[in-house]
Design a protein around this nucleic acid. Structure first.
Length: 853
RNA sequence: GCGAGCGUGGCGGAACUGGUAGACGCACUGGACUUAAAAUCCAGAGAUCGAAAGAUCGUGGGGGUUCGAUUCCCCCCGCUCGCACCA
């Protein structure tokens, strides 16, 4: 018998699948459609284990759905714009385009070696004009519709990447890729009006019932809806500059009678005008500007304020005037950049009031407190209760008070009910070369002029210099010079490029018809969309996944298609982790550099002791990485895939271990031997319905049912366990009869089919060795004979007072009396009864019997 | 601080709507085969006590509901993630 040789059979079957176009998707079919998509990779040059996990998960789904009779679309492409290409250009002098194309080629061949069932005919790379010209034209349509605009604003500047970042790309005050503290810069930038969709994006989250709750919650929080009111407070001294009133936003208009001050942000326009010619105020503003926004800075910062000397009139209480402060804890970016302080019912306001000796008047009385004695000193009361000290609203609940307050404000023309969101518009300008040029021309006489549709695409110049500092497009000697499409005069091109999240916001639509001259065809999109199952990392919860939801709606509203949600089902996979190793000097070591030494580890070459550290996410910096290519060449893609799936549930982090890989490899070798067994019954033998093989036939049918359920629920680790269980059932059948041989054939054939979504190459090879000529890739999923899976005998646990004392074999669905009598006759039960009659016997059919004494 | 999730053998993890805790695998132990090793096959295995039969304990800790709790409720501890001066 020849040996299992992954290298040989894997390329053999990859070629056959390719020759037979097994995975080419056809738009339109009698079969139901199924679109499965994995987040496309950035072409860094080499695949890593995270990719292997992501694409294996997707491939199992794709292959399973295909076998279940779906018309499956399973494409792959390249998110090919981005900064690493420019860094490579600077470091190695290679052009970003060339670098990217070469990386795509090598990663593509790595992916092919994994045996993934992609329709490669639909492959796309976002850095080609053929792709990005369409987003230029989308942008122009957004512009026409008012969904894109340009404004000067304070933006996040990443000093390492030398570009602006969107709010979503700043984590803890640092750039999401560079990790460097971002700076604030005032720049003129392009924005997309994602805020127009805040309410829709938020409320539609409820309908994304096949998304993980975690991601839904993150998007919910990110959009950050607050319902409340805007309230206008008139300045008693007339006006300062052009301002005669301060508008605040509050979620607690019901506490308006407890107001004791107003506070405005340091960069509020009023604060700016006050500071003009006021040294103390200027100094305070400068101090505020220095304050970091990092977690630590915020936590330790005291509440500080600057008393402006201005006063405002309370809008509902003519006798009440409130002082105005500039305060360091008020943010210009949220609400109106101004608040009214009600210290009794807001902790920050209370801290501030205590620091500046402002009155603290409670206006909400907890249900269990008395109006005569209730006071607030150090801890604000934010819970429910009845309003008091609040004039006409006394006795109302907080909720009724909010409504009454808004009504009162509206009738006094002093405010309105208002909903505020945390979500900001998406800034899409990037000061980089390797991105999609923004199709705008700046003309001195005509202003901002869109590049006419006929002149698209605006392509990137090839000959660029990466050695000079700044944006290479700005530095290019001729590219930016053009003529104005309106007046014909000399004009300058926009030199910023789009955020690379622009490309990934619609690639899933392009896959529906990747050569379509309009970017994507509405019909093909109508057929394939939404993506039925999307799979990727959770790190995109509020980046790519939110942008894509917005983008799809925006495209709908400019007339491209009729669709709201791009991804009907989402699954976020966990990270691939590995043990870390360091030598005596604390230097990180690659797993390939160490070897086991009994309980300990030592250096493979010099034999020095090695310290094994924590199990962490695979990362280049800690060197705890395993190269998929090496695993594939040593064990084969099937082994890598099987181990990826077997160890942990997909959404959880998993640990990559050599021992686990060995185990998966051993299992596949065993299956290969089973399929090569010369003593199997001939092909087409009748499956026995009795005799010694019956247990195996049952086990195989059960495996079909369980495995299907497990795959559909993404419990791939359990699905793999079903394979092991079935393989054990085959080994356990020792009988040499003809009918046992037939059962064995049925078992191994079933096992082979069940294995095929996970380890497709070896499954094909086994199928062929079993004597079949048709490819598994084109065969349907096996159907279980459900009459065979219910056994007529069931083993039931018998408890005495809730503790298991014995077990009992009973006919299935045996009636209660039979069960009770049989249980009471058990020696294990009699021993405890000691002749007494039990108080009660609980019989749960086919499950358990509990004798209570 | 707010929100979410998690905590089960030496390890990864199973356990349907409350019903025989530890499926399946890894590591481990013993045996067979072999001159030997590897590979393979067979068997064993939660902990403690016991020769065994068996007993007791056991799903982070403490309480509760129940005939019966990993599962439901309350309190506490620990870890992970997300958000954060959001008015």
């Amino acid at each position: 018998m020849d040996q299992y040789s992954p290298a040989t059979i894997e390329s053999k079957w990859q070629d056959r699948w390719e020759q037979n176009s097994c995975f080419v998707a056809k738009t339109g079919s009698d079969k139901p459609k199924y679109y499965v998509l994995e987040m496309f990779p950035y072409p860094s040059g080499r695949i890593h284990m995270g990719h292997v996990r992501n694409y294996t998960l997707g491939d199992v789904v794709a292959r399973y759905r295909r076998a279940k009779g779906f018309n499956v679309l399973h494409p792959m492409g390249w998110d090919a714009f981005g900064l690493p290409a420019e860094n490579a250009a600077m470091e190695r002098g290679v052009h970003p385009g060339k670098w990217t194309i070469e990386n795509i080629a090598s990663m593509q061949s790595q992916l092919r070696s994994m045996g993934l069932s992609y329709d490669w005919d639909r492959e796309l790379a976002t850095c080609t004009p053929d792709y990005y010209q369409h987003e230029q034209s989308m942008f122009l349509k957004f512009l026409e519709k008012g969904l894109a605009y340009r404004k000067e604003s304070w933006v996040n500047w990443d000093p390492v990447e030398n570009t602006v970042l969107a709010n979503e790309q700043v984590v803890d005050g640092r750039g999401w890729r560079s990790g460097e503290l971002v700076e604030r810069r005032l720049l003129s930038q392009w924005f997309l009006k994602i805020t127009d969709y805040a309410e829709d994006l938020l409320s539609a989250i409820d309908r994304l019932d096949r998304w993980p709750d975690r991601v839904r919650l993150m998007q919910h929080n990110w959009i950050g809806k607050s319902e409340g009111a805007r309230v206008k407070f008139n300045l008693t001294s007339g006006s300062v500059g052009e301002m005669s009133a301060i508008e605040v936003f509050t979620t607690r208009p019901d506490t308006l009678y407890g107001a004791s001050f107003l506070a405005i942000a340091a960069n509020h326009p009023l604060a700016m005008s006050i500071a003009e010619g006021n040294e103390a105020a200027t100094e305070f503003l400068a101090e505020c500007a220095q304050l970091g926004t990092s977690e630590a800075a915020v936590e330790t910062a005291e509440k500080r304020g600057f008393k402006t000397g201005l006063e405002v009139q309370h809008p509902l209480d003519p006798t009440c005037k409130l002082p105005v402060y500039i305060a360091n804890f008020v943010l210009m970016e949220y609400g109106t950049g101004a608040i009214f302080g009600c210290p009794a019912h807001d902790q920050r306001d209370l801290d501030f009031a205590n620091a500046y000796d402002l009155p603290v008047l409670p206006v909400v009385l907890p249900d269990d407190a008395s109006a005569d004695t209730f006071t607030v000193t150090d801890t604000a009361y934010t819970g429910p209760g009845r309003l008091f000290n609040s004039g006409p609203w006394d006795g109302m609940s907080v909720e009724d008070g909010k409504r009454a307050a808004i009504a009162a404000l509206e009738s006094a023309s002093a405010g309105t009910g208002k909903t505020t969101y945390r979500l900001r518009d998406w800034g899409v300008s990037r000061q980089r070369y390797w991105g999609c040029p923004i199709p705008i021309i700046h003309c001195d006489s005509c202003g901002l002029v869109p590049v006419p549709e006929a002149d698209l695409p605006v392509t990137l110049p090839e000959d660029v210099d990466f050695d000079a500092p700044g944006n290479p497009l700005s530095n290019h000697p001729t590219w930016k010079h053009t003529s104005c499409p309106t007046c014909g005069g000399a004009a300058i091109r926009e030199q910023d490029t789009f955020d690379t999240f622009f490309e990934s916001s619609w690639y899933f639509l392009r896959f529906a018809d990747p050569k379509h001259p309009q970017g994507f065809s509405a019909e093909a999109a109508a057929y394939w969309m939404p993506v039925d199952q999307y799979i990727g990392g959770v790190e995109h919860a509020v980046l790519h996944l939110l942008y894509s939801r917005f983008f799809t709606r925006a495209l709908r509203d400019v007339g491209y298609l009729d669709l709201d949600e791009p991804f009907a089902g989402l699954m976020t996979q966990g990270m691939v982790c590995h043990q870390t190793f360091r030598d005596a000097d604390g230097k990180w070591l690659f797993p390939t550099e160490v070897e086991r030494d009994g309980e300990n580890w030592r250096h493979a070459e010099n034999g020095n002791a090695v310290e094994a550290g924590r199990i962490e996410k695979m990362s280049k910096s800690k060197r705890n990485v395993v190269d998929p290519e090496i695993i594939i060449s040593n064990y084969g893609a099937d082994t890598a895939r099987l181990f990826m799936l077997s160890d942990s549930p997909p959404e959880r982090d998993m640990e990559w271990t050599e021992a686990g890989v060995e185990g998966a490899s051993r299992f596949l070798k065993k299956l290969y031997r089973m399929a090569s067994d010369p003593n199997l019954a001939p092909i087409g033998s009748n499956v026995p319905t009795d005799g010694p093989g019956l247990d195996l036939v049952r086990a195989a049918n059960k495996a079909i049912i369980n495995m299907s359920a497990d795959i559909e629920a993404f419990r791939f680790n359990k699905a793999v366990a079903q394979l092991y269980t079935l393989a054990n059932a085959i080994s356990d059948l020792r009988d040499e009869s003809e009918s046992a041989a037939a059962a064995r054939r049925f078992g191994i054939e079933t096992l082979t089919k069940l294995l095929s979504p996970m380890a497709p190459h070896i499954a094909e090879e086994m199928w062929e060795r079993l004597g079949h000529t048709q490819m598994l890739a084109s065969l349907p999923w096996p159907e279980a004979d459900t009459s065979l899976v219910t056994e007529d005998q069931v083993e039931i646990g018998v408890q005495v007072n809730g503790k298991l004392r014995d077990t009992l074999a009973l006919p299935r669905d045996a009636d209660e009396d039979t069960a009770r009598e049989a249980a009471l006759a058990l020696p294990g039960v009699i021993r405890y009864l000691e002749g007494a009659t039990p108080k009660k016997v609980i019989v749960v059919k086919n499950r358990i019997i509990n004798v209570v004494i």
